[in-house]
């Protein structure tokens, strides 16, 4: 693959764009799989919490919905942040932007669809 030295220098380092803010690349390099184990424990804890909350009917319906929603988002955060190595990339971790845009649009899509399909015509 390494055929063009001129390309290797500049092109490889992503045109000298080291990334900034949340798209700065970062590689997970560990000796012991601490983060994996922490992530596993966290994910189990989050799931079991939401399950137990629902089984024992800790709150009334609406706060309960909010609570398990938050737990699910937290779980997604654990998976994306710890297991999926979100910011691993050569050069800026561009995938972060479409990913979060995707989260935003997906959430909007679901919420808006529910809102539209309620047909609250009002006034009658």
């Amino acid at each position: 693959m390494a055929k063009e030295p001129s390309e290797q220098i500049i092109w490889d380092e992503e045109r000298g764009e080291p990334g900034f803010g949340f798209i700065r690349p970062h590689f997970h390099q560990e000796i012991f799989p601490t983060s994996q184990i922490v992530g596993y424990v966290l994910s189990l804890a989050l799931t079991l919490t939401s399950f137990l909350l629902v089984i024992h009917r800790t709150f009334s319906a609406s706060p309960l919905l909010v609570a398990i929603l938050i737990l699910a988002v937290g779980q997604a955060g654990v998976q994306v942040g710890i297991f999926m190595h979100l910011r691993e990339s050569r050069g800026p971790a561009w995938q972060v932007i479409p990913l979060f845009l995707g989260f935003f649009i997906a959430g909007g899509m679901i919420a808006m669809s529910i809102w539209i399909m309620m047909f609250k015509w009002g006034g009658y």
């Binding site: 992530g39 189990l44 998976q79 710890i82 297991f83």
Partner: peptide, 8 residues
């Protein structure tokens, strides 16, 4: 969840 951990 466990399989997610093992693939990690």
């Amino acid at each position: 969840l466990t399989s997610s951990f093992t693939v990690g």
